[in-house]
Nucleic acid binder design. Sequence first.
DNA 1: CTGTTAGCGCTTTCAG
DNA 2: CTGAAAGCGCTAACAG
Lengths: 343, 343
Amino acid sequence: MKRGHQITMKEIAKKLGVSVSTISRALKDSPELHPETKRKIVEMAKEMNYQPNLLAQSLRISRSKTLGVIVPEITSHFFASCISGIQDYANKRGYNVMICQSNESIDQEKANIRTLVSSQVDGLLISLSRETNKFDHLYELYNREINFVLFDRVHEEIPVSKVTFNDVGGAYQVTHHLLEGNNRRIVYVSGPEDLYISKKRKEGYLKALAEYGIENDPLLIKISDLTLEDNVRVAREITEMDPRPDAVFCMIDPVAVDVLTEWKSMGIKIPEDMALAGFTNNPTSAVIEPPLTTVAQPGYEMGKLAVTHLLDQLDGLASEDPISIVLETTLVPRKSSQHFQVK
Amino acid sequence: MKRGHQITMKEIAKKLGVSVSTISRALKDSPELHPETKRKIVEMAKEMNYQPNLLAQSLRISRSKTLGVIVPEITSHFFASCISGIQDYANKRGYNVMICQSNESIDQEKANIRTLVSSQVDGLLISLSRETNKFDHLYELYNREINFVLFDRVHEEIPVSKVTFNDVGGAYQVTHHLLEGNNRRIVYVSGPEDLYISKKRKEGYLKALAEYGIENDPLLIKISDLTLEDNVRVAREITEMDPRPDAVFCMIDPVAVDVLTEWKSMGIKIPEDMALAGFTNNPTSAVIEPPLTTVAQPGYEMGKLAVTHLLDQLDGLASEDPISIVLETTLVPRKSSQHFQVK
DNA sequence: CTGTTAGCGCTTTCAG
DNA sequence: CTGAAAGCGCTAACAG
């Protein structure tokens, strides 16, 4: 299919009998131009419906005014919120955004980086896939001096700017909340152990327990690979524990939802039989029965901060030295954790 | 901040003592090249970690291999699914995707189109904002022979390809389902009347009623502007109707959720007091209490079909004549509509 | 104040 | 089989 012809500066120039550079100058409002010429050009450009060719412009100035974003999956409400924040604040500063999803695959993540770099993005915002346990591709970016910021799912060691939540604090908040509700035997359902958030949230969980003088009991830590099947397996195992735990804290809401659903089908009542809590505050968690106690993570805000910092670096408004921005989370207490209260 | 230097063909050429055109030919596997030369070049390119500058390439061949996507909002699960389908199938065919959200604003929609066109996308996939009731910007694209496909929120009159759901059919399905459950006084909660889906779903609703010999009663049609406040207003008005309706069919799930939540707070029991149904099958609808009867719309599939058709047109695999693809929906009966069954 | 020139990185005739 | 040259649309010295 043929594509529609776009007006170029050359055509405006010919029509007006001036040179292309004069057009260029007029359109970027250069001061050293006769006002009348400028006016005529701007008018004509409008009349002919001129739209600059950003490709040519980018090639020329070696800046594409485009950012690349890589998220594990776009259909997750949390990442969609991040993207939304990134978009809004990138656009505000005249940048476009190309979005890719890794689908939780490291190979896809690498491929995404490759195409975005080829597309000459000025910088990247990356949230790592679950599979990513080697980081050569990130170090390569780093060595090639390509600007990028990691957010949410980060790799701690690499010296680039990162935006994360206070995962330790959030896990502490929710565990503390469960302890205050008189729960003592509290299970932590973790994701794969090499995941950043698995570790951090465990840390917060243990910290809260320690404050209550409760020793770390490895039997109370369950690990799921985060698939529905494995979440169900964990849910069942928990019901078979003796004595039965008072409460269960799942690393992310979807796990808690799967666990809750499985328990419901087994006739286990929440919060009567056990307290349950998650982490993320997905929309689903508010409407499920019972509503799920969780920890809210402002995704839009995270996206906004990440992109703003990246652009500040690109525009020379922020130092090139990597910084770490930590966002606080908020406990959202709901019915699912009112175990002893309703007993 | 300085950006990392990228290897160019020129540099490979110098290193190997050949011309740039030879590099270009070797890298696109031209047959008229000495195999040995080709091998050496490919090897060197790999060693130097060459990555083509897509900007330069696009400028030269006047095809960017990039598509533009505009959706009302990325945080909606339905649109996120569409995007996911678009991404996957665009990538499979070597295309990148730039995504924009209009935030339900026609001005933002126009601005998005402008930047995407400036970015030289090869085609556009657009789902219109709620505000869009004038279509000049679409006709302009059409007149400039820029390829685009409309999906989900379309403008019927314009002669371009469209991908939609069988909205009439879906609304018919759900209304028919309510009628089969012996509900007779059925309210339809519509969105703004000039919205495409408002009209189409009303059509299906009336069609099902007609089959049961029920006359169109304008008093049973409520219109909400889809904000929370207005949904709540409608929810209250319905409870004051005399006689109280048997069932309520809301044009989209979020309205049904707001209505349900309001009713719950008023002590009205669903489905005991009234049947309720929505449309879209949002994740939320499955977990709310009671689970919401609704109509499933496969978003991923819609994205896939829309992008595949657009690419087929671009690549000359499909005729340029606009076509209309209509996806069927599936009724998802859940507890919220079992009014007379549980009475 | 404005035109000429060169060149961003790449592809593609046209010669040889 | 390979090189030279032109040019995609734009910007930015450098002249005048």
